[in-house]
């Protein structure tokens, strides 16, 4: 790895870690994602600061083009993560549906559509059957 690439990697890593730390400090992430992203940041930092580490591990695994190892790990990680998010989203959608039903039943038959409600809906991007 040349000095330039190393510098580039280091910069990107510092940026990524900075964003992660910022998100964590503002406490906008759930605890489990905090842990997850902090780990990711740590791994990135280690890989960037010890450039030979990746090469050595790649050699150990018999991967002759070292960046492949990084890409492999990165893609695998992202794939798992997006699968996890799909699962979470499905579960959340199910709960939101149940809540919507519950709300409609609680509102009961006597509830008149308030005007501000409808105005709000017209402002929003929602409209054509998003559920389909």
């Amino acid at each position: 790895m040349t000095v330039e690439t190393h510098a580039l990697l280091a910069t990107l890593t510092v940026l990524a870690v900075a964003v992660i730390v910022r998100l964590v400090r503002r406490q906008v992430l759930k605890a489990k994602y905090t842990v997850l992203w902090l780990t990711v940041g740590l791994v990135l930092a280690i890989t960037a600061s010890v450039p030979t580490l990746l090469d050595r591990v790649a050699d150990l695994l018999g991967i002759w083009y070292q960046p492949t190892l990084f890409l492999l790990l990165a893609i695998g990680f992202l794939l798992l993560l997006s699968m996890h998010f799909s699962y979470e989203m499905s579960r959340m959608e199910k709960r939101i549906r149940a809540l919507a039903e519950e709300l409609a039943l609680l509102r009961g038959p006597g509830d008149d559509p308030p005007d501000h409600d409808r105005n709000h809906e017209e402002d929003g991007p929602a409209g054509e059957h998003p559920g389909a």
């Binding site: 549906r97 919507a100 039903e101 709300l103 409609a104 039943l105 509102r107 009961g108 038959p109 509830d111 008149d112 559509p113 409808r118 809906e121 017209e122 929602a126 409209g127 059957h129 998003p130 559920g131 389909a132």
Partner: peptide, 26 residues
């Protein structure tokens, strides 16, 4: 987003209003 609920009640039906569109199955 139109006056479906009012039309339903004017027609003598019970009307349950979902807070947002769930699609026909929902």
């Amino acid at each position: 987003t139109d006056s479906t609920a009012n039309a339903a009640r004017a027609g003598g039906a019970t009307c349950l209003r979902l807070p947002f569109n769930l699609g026909i199955g929902g």
